[in-house]
Write a protein that binds this DNA or RNA. Structure first.
Lengths: 216, 216
DNA sequence: TGGTTCCGATACTCGACAGTACCGTATAGA
DNA sequence: TCTATACGGTACTGTCGAGTATCGGAACCA
């Protein structure tokens, strides 16, 4: 992204060959997926290009034909995570904020979260040296979840359930942050029980709601 | 810690030499400090033993006489952070929780926090492969700050300022988590303004307190 | 069918770094 | 003062992986 070598590939892009085989771009996602897999398992520095190539059943040269370096491959893989995400299911609408937040706890979203945490751990060492990677990781891993929380909360404001004076921008980040900490540092499972206790013990109180609104 | 080679050092420990010079243990802290410095600057994988040695003005062999490997050196350095911390200043006691929390925001503590965040970023890649390191990093970096918050909050419970039903264990982790996220991922400064907004916008509300108790 | 280019595979170069060996010197104990 | 050992420094070894070069075969286009 930053440093594109002015090499063969770019020249060929300007003067496309008239004959012969065209580049098979259907293999790109497979390679990027393999990169994310290896990244999650071994971390950036433990990851080798050969691992990614063999995992994707591709040749090492093929990878270097598409990305100028290991770093660029990883940045691209993380940046593409966002696009390649499974079609967002519609937001839950249970009528109460607590109901909505709890409804977002699904086995699928927990698995998805665990995988992302692994990837993030593998990236951290490189993040402090590549700001663009930090942005990509934030956009692909932390932001999507925070954005969902924000939407639910703003809807609760419109309903009059919570005050518009609440610091929703910050509060929406609580669960992503705490989940990250719990996974990476504490190495404890992020299960339904933990998430519910976060909702009832921290998030709802900070919005001025009691945990169990027995009446409406 | 995990894999101690049964080598020369251990044999010498069993049969200490009767004559000659003894090992100069006053250099250990200097080496560990140098290791933390390099760790913060370059991360675990970017750090080389030569860097640490020259930073500590020691020979590479000296390092290997004391620690069997690079990994052990780093684990030891992180574990020793906790002990080598500057004598804790007494807890503030302003009479209100908000006053206490705000009083803890000091230039020194912010600098200290930034340094620790750098070290943590450098460690992350290794943390997912060495649980003992995760524990050490947690104990040295995250826990001390959370513990301070906890103490202040439990004191507020005793004063009757907040309810004992609050999830203090979780709420005390909010600021360490959010600070970590802001530093490592967002790469924004953790200044007084941010910390105060966290206190007033998230922490106090979650404890059932309004941001500005104009009366007592 | 024929020509061209991309593919996967493999072998290679080259630099970096963990860990070891060794040297001359400094220092502390006897 | 003498001696054994730890010290800082440096040269060395061995490994590992990024990136390059090349090859036979396959796929695509005309």
């Amino acid at each position: 992204m930053t440093l594109l070598k002015p090499e063969t590939d770019q020249v060929q892009a300007r003067f496309p060959p008239k004959l012969g085989r065209k580049r098979d771009h259907t293999r790109d996602p497979k390679i990027l997926d393999a990169a994310l897999e290896v990244l999650a398992e071994t971390g950036y520095d433990g990851m080798t290009i050969d691992m990614v190539a063999s995992r994707a059943k591709a040749g090492k040269a093929t990878l270097y034909r598409r990305w100028p370096s290991k770093a660029e491959l990883v940045i691209d893989a993380v940046a593409c995570m966002k696009k390649n995400m499974h079609g967002d299911e519609p937001l839950p609408d249970t009528g109460t904020l607590r109901g909505d937040l709890v409804a977002m706890i699904k086995p699928h979203s927990i698995e998805d979260s665990e995988r992302k945490m692994q990837i993030m751990a593998g990236l951290m060492s490189m993040i402090s040296q590549a700001p663009e990677l930090a942005d990509a990781a934030n956009a692909a891993i932390m932001e999507p979840r925070a954005a969902l929380n924000r939407q639910l909360m703003y809807r609760a404001v419109e309903r009059g359930e919570i005050s518009s004076a609440c610091d929703i921008e910050s509060i929406a980040m609580i669960s992503p942050c705490m989940v990250t900490y719990r996974t990476l540092m504490l190495r404890k499972p992020v299960d339904r029980e933990f998430l519910v206790s976060l909702i009832d013990g921290v998030i709802l109180p900070s919005l001025g709601l009691s945990a169990k609104p027995s009446a409406s």
